[in-house]
Each structure stands twice: as structure tokens, then as C-alpha cells.
Simulated assay, not measured.
Amino acid sequence: MSQNFEFYNTRAKEAAAEAKAAKLDNVRERALRSETAWREMADRAKQMEEDREVARIDREQRQAEAAELEAAKVLAAPEALAS
């Protein structure tokens, strides 16, 4: 995973630990809100990384198909000249 995901996930875990250790309600609530925000950022970072990987695979497949078509044209060109 990306470094952003790891960073956000670590912050979420820290906030969860802070909430668990909090003695005051307002401190606990603040830490839980913080955990929620960090988890949302981690989820978005993870999704973005997955989307980038899918796009990379699609791009590589399109490039491979284009290369195959170009190779087929080159192989067919001498036959067209002979006709």
C-alpha cells in the first residue's frame, strides 16, 4: 500500500488508543472523531491506490494490444506489396 495509507492508518490507531485511555468524555469523543476522520482518509488513500493499479493494468493491456496490431500490420505489409 501507499505511504499515505500507512500514515493515515497509523494515526487512526493512535486516535483509537487515545480514546480508549481517555478518562474525560470530551477527550474520548474528540479522539473518536479523530479516529473516524483518519480512517476515512486511509480508506480513500487505499481506494485511490487500487484505482491507480487498475488503470495501470488497463493501460498496459491497451499498449500490448496496440503493439500486436502494429506487428500484424508490419507482417502483412510485404504480402500487400507482393500482390
Rank of each mutant, 00 (worst) to 15 (best):
Leu24Glu: 15
Ala15Gln: 03
Glu40Gly: 00
Ala66Met: 07
Ile57Met: 07
Ala67Arg: 14
Ile57Gln: 13
Arg33Glu: 14
Val27Asn: 06
Ala82Ile: 08
Lys13Asn: 11
Val27Arg: 08
Ala72Trp: 10
Arg28Ile: 00
Ala22Tyr: 03
Ser2Gln: 05
Lys46Arg: 13
Lys23Ala: 08
Ser83Asn: 10
Ala37Glu: 14
Glu50Gln: 14
Lys46Asp: 07
Lys46Gly: 05
Val74Phe: 10
Asp25Tyr: 11
Gln3Asn: 10
Phe5His: 13
Ala31Thr: 01
Ala31Ile: 04
Arg52Leu: 11
Ala19Asn: 01
Ala72Pro: 01
Glu65Met: 05
Thr36Gly: 07
Trp38Ala: 09
Glu53Gln: 14
Asn4Asp: 15
Lys73Met: 11
Ala21Tyr: 01
Phe5Met: 05
Asn4Ala: 14
Leu24Ser: 13
Val74Leu: 15
Trp38His: 13
Ala76Glu: 11
Glu18Ser: 09
Ala31Lys: 00
Ala80Tyr: 10
Gln47Asp: 03
Lys20Gly: 00
Ile57Arg: 15
Ser2Leu: 06
Asn4Tyr: 08
Asp25Ile: 09
Glu68Gly: 04
Ala76Asn: 10
Glu68Ala: 15
Leu24Tyr: 07
Lys23Ile: 02
Phe5Gly: 03
Met48Ser: 12
Glu14His: 02
Glu6Met: 11
Ala37Phe: 09
Ala77Lys: 11
Met48Ile: 06
Gln61Arg: 15
Glu29Gln: 13
Tyr8Asn: 03
Ala16Glu: 13
Ser34Asp: 14
Ser34Phe: 01
Ala77Phe: 12
Leu24Gln: 15
Leu32Pro: 01
Asn4Gly: 03
Ala15Pro: 05
Lys23Glu: 14
Leu75Ser: 10
Trp38Cys: 02
Ala17Ile: 05
Tyr8Ser: 04
Lys20Trp: 04
Ala12Cys: 01
Asp43Leu: 13
Ala76Cys: 01
Ala42Cys: 01
Ala76Asp: 10
Ser83Thr: 08
Pro78Gly: 05
Glu68Arg: 15
Phe5Lys: 07
Glu18Gly: 01
Ala77Val: 02
Trp38Ile: 00
Leu69Lys: 12
Ala80Asp: 10
Lys73Gly: 00
Arg44Asn: 15
Arg62Leu: 05
Leu32His: 00
Glu53Ile: 05
Arg44Trp: 03
Glu14Pro: 00
Ala72Tyr: 07
Ala16Met: 11
Ser83Gln: 10
Asp43Asn: 12
Gln47Gly: 02
Lys23Gln: 11
Ala17Ser: 07
Asn26Asp: 15
Ala21Ser: 07
Arg33Leu: 12
Arg39Glu: 03
Leu24Met: 11
Arg59His: 09
